[in-house]
Design a protein around this nucleic acid. Structure first.
Lengths: 347, 347
DNA sequence: GACCAAAGTTTACGCACGTTAAATTTGGGA
DNA sequence: TCCCAAATTTAACGTGCGTAAACTTTGGTC
């Protein structure tokens, strides 16, 4: 059993190096002379010591922390987004603190309070679309660097960057492909939880009109509840298919989770092909390339977002704000990334 | 714009209440006289102040923090488990700090260091199955209360509780059901990443022998890589189905993600029924009731773990250790929960 | 061997709040 | 109105480490 050491003071005595030097060593090991570094490192192997997380961050200009807020941890989309942000952050020696708003604007506001109390260096948010969210982040942006990711706020904010997917490119790619290979698609939108919802609808309308087709939305009479996308889409299409509607249509879904529900409903009503080499009349396409989508039967045609780029870019922009001594430029940068079409069996 | 206040000292001046009273108020609002409480609360609405997270935790016996380590945040199983732990923790006014080991024993060890440096009150871990993990947690358990969840360590540890699923009940339930309704199942195991893997295999063998059947494992010649369960199972079964093996068998998978891969392979080879009211010969069952499983085609027969109970129980046991002034009992408690059979279309 | 900049040591203060003990107020009840 | 227990204030120290300034020691150079 190694000797348990609680404070840097004790450590200093134990290995014979002054406390300020130890402090410097822990901040940046390269900043001390090689011989001293070895002495410390050898000493550390002898004892059991970890610097106190709170004490180290209490009196430092930069805490090395960045906060990330996502709406739902049980949605693989956001789980992947979070990881994509965390990777570059760790490379740059930042620690990511994650908070989930659970789709609730009040929890989102509470997460912001937590970040303020932790003196995080900056915040990356996949915001909810509520008006109240916008207010919270407007206030926050006057005190901390913020980058929005995946979804915008109802109103644009000065000095807040945005990184996301180019919905117009992605939807246009899908609409073009679907129109070229079969009947023009109907659109099944997602509950308006954030700004991607109306944006993808608008993109759909624009693409259809450009191709000379009339936009057509799947009729919806059910009120969606929360984030249960699959169940919502299933309920909607189960009713339709049961009455013989849309049974040979092409349905473009605003995301893969909706498409999953649609496929399920189609399966129930025998609208799916038996084998992958037999084409069905009903066609379904999604958006996001959920990890499950390639394993569904039929496998789902969709577009893959560039998580890697989005994560890296949002962190890079945040870092620029953090290091840019605040008042850099007041106009928010926008970076959107194109998607890649994944043609599979469902359309 | 509210007046921005940085320290409790300033707050004290601003609203005319002494700092120790404010400190007491923030620890427990009920501990100050009603009139004082109102005075403070009204004052807080006037100004913009949040207590510093680090300072409040630096010099306090209990930080109100508990650490949770899971192997993979992009696996919905662990995402749900995490949420199930977080719920009761928040109710008890604890803050959960999550770390992901990303399936890597070194990262797991680093997460432990982080928790030590944060003086968390306790740790809940869904451990990796490595030998090194056991060492790390053995050391940790001498300094902090620990509860293992979902998976055990290679060796039992004194004064470390375990909460998980009763694999013998769950597998037995599945085996019984499958044998009663069709051909006895073959077993497709998961890569040996944790102790659930061998345990479910053993449970399968036991159940089969009890029913008088000969256990039979799906032949596997592929080396699994990491946590890509679906792809692994797909590759395994694609080869088999392509050669006409197992095409009318019953396959019991160690988890739903494997089953997903199996269903995908089956779909490719036309082994799935066209409609839900037509029975196929090939039958597939999973384990865990992944949120996606009910939306697959065919929907997956599986067993649902009791996340609610597991999360609540693991937190409760941890709390008992935390409040039990350490040296309570040295023998680890075990709590396992039964699963519920979800009969769907795949078997 | 003298010299000089780099690196380390001493000393001391600061961070924002927890916590304690003694001194002072407060708020009802008799 | 007086009295007393409860609540608050005052004053002071502690938490573990960052950081700055002044001083001393290194280690290589000429």
């Amino acid at each position: 059993m190694k000797q348990k050491i609680k404070t840097m003071e004790e450590l200093s005595e134990a290995i014979g190096v002054s406390r300020p030097t130890l402090s410097r060593f822990f901040r940046d090991a390269e900043s001390v002379r090689a011989s001293t570094r070895q002495k410390i490192e050898r000493g550390l192997e002898t004892v059991d010591y970890v610097p106190n997380f709170f004490a180290t961050r209490l009196n430092r200009k930069s805490t090395g922390l960045i906060g990330v807020i996502i709406p739902d941890t049980e949605d693989l989309f956001f789980a992947r987004l979070l990881n994509a942000i965390e990777r570059p952050a760790l490379e740059a020696d930042y620690t990511v603190v994650r908070q989930s708003s659970h789709g609730n604007a009040q929890l989102e506001a509470r997460a912001v309070e937590t970040f303020l109390s932790m003196n995080v260096d900056g915040v990356i948010v996949a915001p909810l679309g509520r008006e109240s969210s916008a207010d919270v982040f407007a206030r926050l942006s006057t005190r901390l660097p913020i980058v929005l990711v995946d979804s915008r706020l109802p109103h644009a904010l000065p000095s807040v960057d945005f990184v996301g997917t180019n919905n117009f490119q992605s939807i246009d790619t899908l609409v073009n492909y679907l129109c070229r290979t079969g009947t023009p698609p109907h659109f099944l939108g997602m509950p308006p939880l954030n700004t991607n919802s109306p944006e993808r609808e608008a993109a759909y309308v624009a693409s259809m009109e450009r191709l000379g087709f009339k936009p057509a939305f799947v009729e919806v009479s059910i009120e969606p509840e929360g984030w249960e996308f699959e169940a919502y889409a299933y309920d909607v299409m189960d009713a339709h298919f049961g009455s013989g509607r849309y049974v040979d249509a092409t349905i473009l879904c605003a995301n893969d989770r909706l498409a999953t529900g649609v496929l399920r409903a189609a399966g129930k009503h025998g609208l799916l092909p038996r084998r992958s080499d037999v084409k069905a009349k009903l066609r379904v396409a999604g958006h996001d390339d959920n990890p499950m989508s390639r394993f569904m039967t039929p496998s789902l045609t969709t577009v893959a977002q560039n998580f890697e780029a989005i994560g890296r870019s949002s962190f890079r922009l945040l870092l620029r704000r953090i290091e840019g001594d605040a008042s850099l430029e007041s106009s928010g940068t926008e970076e959107v990334y194109d998607t890649i079409l994944r043609i599979r069996e469902s359309a």
